[in-house]
Amino acid sequence: MKHFDTNTFKITEPVRISELSTELDLEESKKEIKKELEDLREDLGKLQDTLYAHGKYGVLVCIQGMDTAGKDSMIREVFKDFNTRGIVVHSFKVPTELELKHDYLWRHYIALPARGKFSIFNRTHYENVLVTRVHPYYIMGENIPGVETVDDVNDEFWAKRFEQINNFEKHIAENGTIIFKFFLNLSKDEQKDRLLRRLELKEKNWKFSPGDLKERKLWDKYQECYEDVLNKTSKPHAPWFAIPADDKPTARYIVAKIIYDTLREYSDIEEPELDDDIKANLEEYKKQLESE
C-alpha cells in the first residue's frame, strides 16, 4: 500500500476547500484496503482496551460532512472491533424541546466521553455554525437574549460563537479529552451519484429525503461555511483533518490510521500496574483456583 503521512490531512494553515483533494489513490484494490483496515481495526481495539484500563483520557471523535459523505458507515467500519463498554455513538439531529431550553453546547457537553471511553459524534457541535449559518432563522428557536430578529444573527454573532466553540474544546482538552475532528471532503459529483443510488436501489430508498435535494442546491454556501470552520477552529489541541471521501474504504482507512497513530504517541497510556500485594500473591491465587 502507498505510504502516506497522516499529518498531510491535518489543517495547520488557512485552506481553500476547492483546493483540497476529495480522492486519494492508495495504489491497492478495494479488497486489499479493506483487509488493511481489518488489521488496523484490531490494533485499535486493543489500544482501546488499554485506554479503558488506564482511565485517564477520554477520546472525542467528531465526524462532519455533507449528506451522503459516509458518516454512518465510517463509524460502523472503523469502530467495529471496539468493546461496547468503552464507546458511545451520539447522532445529533434537530434539537429537542428540552435541548432548546439550554445553551447550544449543553447537549454536546453531557455527551462527552468519560475517562477511558470514546464518544463518537455523528454530526457535532459544528452544526451550530454550519446548518444554522446556512439557515440563520433556525437560531430564533434558541431563544437567546439579545437576539430578537434574524438581523441580530450577524458577523459579530458568528465570531462570538466560533470563540465559544474554541473555548469549549480548549477546556475539555486541558482536562483529559483527546479530540479528533474529521471533515469528510466529498465532491459534488460523487454526492450526486450517491443520491442517485439511494433512488435506484430499493434497499437504499429509505435513506433518501427530498430535503437532500434542497440542501444540495445550497452546496456552495455550505462549502463556504465549512471552509470557515476549518480555518477558524483547527487548533493544536483540537485539529481538523480533511479526509478525501469520494472512496469510502480509503476514507475509513485514513481515519483509522490517524486515530491509531495519534494515540500511539501518548506514551503514558498503558495498563495500570497491579497492587503490590496482589502481584506478590498471584501464584497463591492460581493454586487456590487449581485446587478446586
Rank of each mutant, 00 (worst) to 15 (best):
K257W: 01
E13S: 14
K101I: 01
T262F: 04
A251M: 11
T96G: 07
E38G: 04
K170F: 12
E27Y: 06
I278S: 09
V153L: 00
K71P: 02
M74T: 15
D189P: 03
D189C: 00
K217G: 06
Y52R: 12
Y253N: 01
D43Q: 11
Y253M: 03
N122P: 02
A173T: 04
S21R: 15
R41Y: 02
P113N: 07
E36L: 07
D39L: 04
A280C: 04
K10W: 02
K221I: 01
Q164P: 06
E224G: 03
L263E: 04
P272H: 02
M66D: 05
F241M: 05
I269D: 01
F82T: 03
S21V: 07
T96Q: 11
E292N: 09
V129C: 02
L274F: 08
E28G: 06
E163K: 15
K214P: 05
W240Q: 11
F92W: 10
K34H: 07
R16Y: 08
E99H: 07
E203N: 14
F118Y: 15
K31T: 13
E32A: 14
K10S: 07
K101H: 07
E28W: 07
V78K: 05
K71R: 00
E28R: 09
F182W: 09
L112G: 07
T50N: 07
R198W: 00
K202G: 01
N166F: 03
E97I: 04
E27P: 06
H54W: 12
V129G: 00
N281R: 06
W158L: 05
F208C: 11
N143D: 14
T50P: 03
Y253S: 10
H54T: 08
L98D: 14
R133Q: 12
D72V: 03
K221D: 12
D152S: 00
D49T: 14
N122T: 09
P145C: 04
D151I: 03
G45N: 04
H102R: 15
I254C: 07
E142D: 01
I33H: 13
R123P: 03
I75G: 10
W106S: 10
V150D: 04
Q64L: 06
H102N: 14
Y57H: 14
A280K: 14
Y138M: 15
L218H: 07
D43P: 00
A114P: 09
R123K: 08
R198E: 13
I278P: 06
H171G: 03
R16V: 05
L26V: 12
G45W: 06
S267T: 15
G55W: 05
H3T: 04
F168Q: 06
R197M: 15
L218S: 10
L100Y: 07
V78S: 02
E156V: 14
I63W: 03
V150H: 00
L26E: 10
K287A: 02
T12D: 09
I243G: 05
Y285E: 13
L98V: 12
E290Y: 08
D247A: 10
I179C: 12
K170S: 11
L195C: 00
V89H: 06
N7V: 08
E163G: 00
Y266P: 09
T8I: 15
E27D: 10
D275Y: 11
L44N: 09
R198V: 05
R194Q: 10
D193A: 15
K286A: 14
G55Q: 13
V61K: 10
T96E: 05
I120V: 14
T84C: 02
F79L: 06
K170D: 14
Y138G: 04
N7H: 13
E190T: 12
I258C: 11
L47F: 15
E227W: 06
T8L: 15
Q223Y: 03
